[in-house]
Design a protein around this nucleic acid. Structure first.
Lengths: 337, 337
DNA sequence: CAGCTTTCTGTAATCGATTACATCAGTCTC
DNA sequence: GAGACTGATGTAATCGATTACAGAAAGCTG
């Protein structure tokens, strides 16, 4: 339409000053009732919409939060981001997103641009020096990095690995392979640690294959598993995607899940219950994680209070479906070949 | 850190005026070489970062694009949004996202806030009156609505449906069921039209079940299919998710794919190739769609040129995997029961 | 009714950048 | 060396809102 309507136009239309218009919109209690009505009428008559840049500049707060994720294309994040956006919208905050792997210069420019007044950080692998220098409130979500010295929220990954082992052990499995995520990833490390601990506590050997979170990594792991001399009877994978890759490659190699190997995933993505076989997996409450992190950040922003310290850890929850089953020694006493 | 560094601080540190600093940063050619060096040194010494709100206000353009999608949690969008973000970042634009189903008031506020100077719209079901009133450049992506009278980009959905039918017909299938998306959705409509056209062109009956894009819709469709008197030998589903739901429910009901029924999906999501069986499906080049739409929008914004008119339609591409197979009449000549 | 509150509204400074215009120094030309 | 021109820099207005402060009007008290 016509050139943008400014607050001065509304003021003119209502026969008041711009100050009164501004007050009517942001703190109506300060304005007389009749004036208020006149102003509101002028607002809708002119179709006035506030100019965010001007407001942000004056108020010194952009009323927006920035979400940084290592890979926006990853389905794992979409539900989390949706939940964050939901909370933010209800609080009247905009949501800006960026790939956190954009390069430190770009990232600094984005973070320091003054466009956001709080950050949800889903990446634990950024340079700590950079992150520590950020002056906005930041909350870590899912991944973390002790070098950042920031508060955060995540599930208890080590406990999750223990729960997975508990489940498999209860089914009688003793040779369990852990196809882990990337070695440098904190999630991988925490889960590996939990896995190792649970296995050694039972006096079982902790077999770990450095894999990855992707379908391809899972498929590759299937070959590694198939080539093992004394094949593990159960596999605990880094992610559901990894599990899907593993299972579907096993299938291609002539093995069946759970007949030949029990598989347990991680994340409980939407497909997990509809895969063939339906996948036993550690549930990550992604909507809840996103919502809770956003709420903590948003309320800190609105009250201008510090975020508080420390990590919230959500206890793990195992969803048992059909990709795991009790171990029965095959061809009892038979040879390996 | 310390209170924010402003351009005046840099100017003071370099012993020049703010105008010179500003020019050094935005049009270096106008500034003498020695001065430029001095300014740049002052910039890095002070750690100056431009204040986006102030720049946006003065320049009257926020250098950001807004992505509106009907459901941010949907995995279909994540890769598209990632691609958009990529293009935008390289052009120095921020990306704001919002669920387009937030309600018209909220949406108007977001769109008219002046925070974005262009929109990528992934939703074809917003009120046309509202969308037509938007003064920013908008490009429609994937979905569309003729009522908006806006340019856009999408794959040729009708042609895609025809390709699917061609493939199934070539395999000898004559009774084909189309499990369509939601009836009010443009994609559903276009694909239904293509399906109907291709079927009638062959003199085959066009069976259509109103389903949906979700796993649940697919699972429900499996029951409908199973209960049909003369069961179709092939199914063309609304989406890969729908296909997964269909296949996995079939499996639960004791049917196997493609032995008992060939299934063809739509979208070619990441899992499609790793599902069991690997899914034959229509490929949607999501990264390319996102990139191309973003490029068109971004270049219009940077050159301050209009977006141009009309839809770009990408020809469909069928990926043949293992969920479809040649039809062989069972129990040749046997009875139906 | 004077004096004091209270309530409402207006004036003008302000946020931090950009940029039109003015100024100034140096170079070139005749 | 005067005048014209070029290139570099500074001054100050400007973008559109918010808000401290001031002032006016109305209400209350004794």
């Amino acid at each position: 339409m016509s050139p943008r309507v400014r607050i001065a136009d509304v003021a003119a239309a209502a026969g008041v000053s711009t100050a009164t218009v501004s007050r009517t919109l942001s703190s109506p209690g300060l304005v007389g009732e009749k004036t208020r009505e006149r102003v509101m009428a002028a607002v809708s008559a002119t179709g006035y919409r506030i100019n965010a840049a001007a407001r942000d500049l004056r108020r010194q707060q952009p009323r927006a939060i920035l979400v940084l994720a290592p890979n926006l294309a990853n389905t794992f994040f979409s539900r989390i981001i949706a939940a964050i956006q939901d909370v933010a919208r209800q609080a009247g905050l905009a949501v800006q997103i960026s790939d956190s792997r954009a390069g430190t210069d770009v990232l600094e420019a984005i973070v320091q641009s003054g466009r956001a007044d709080g950050i949800v950080l889903l990446d634990g692998a950024l340079p700590p020096d950079m992150v520590r220098n950020w002056t906005l409130p930041v909350i870590q979500l899912c991944e973390w990095n002790d070098g950042y010295a920031l508060p955060g929220l995540r599930i208890d990954n080590a406990a999750a690995a223990r729960v997975a082992v508990d489940h498999l052990a209860a089914l009688g499995h003793e040779r369990i392979l852990h196809v882990s995520g990337p070695a440098e990833n904190v999630l991988s490390q925490a889960r590996q640690a939990g896995f190792r601990e649970a296995m050694t506590a039972r006096g079982l050997p902790a077999d770990i294959h450095d894999g990855g979170f992707t379908i391809e990594a899972g498929a590759a792991a299937a070959h590694v598993w198939a080539a093992m001399a004394d094949r593990p009877t159960a596999v605990f994978t880094a992610s559901d995607e990894c599990a899907f890759g593993f299972i579907s490659e096993c299938y291609r190699l002539g093995f069946e899940v759970p007949r030949d190997v029990s598989v347990i995933g991680f994340d409980d993505v939407d497909f997990a219950g509809h895969f063939i076989p339906p996948l036993t997996t550690i549930h990550q409450p992604r909507a809840r994680l996103g919502r809770q992190a956003a709420e903590r950040l948003v309320s800190a922003l609105l009250e201008d209070a510090p975020l508080g310290e420390g990590y919230d850890q959500i206890p793990p929850h195992l969803v048992i479906r059909s990709s795991t089953t009790a171990y029965r020694a095959k061809t009892q006493g038979g040879s390996a070949a």
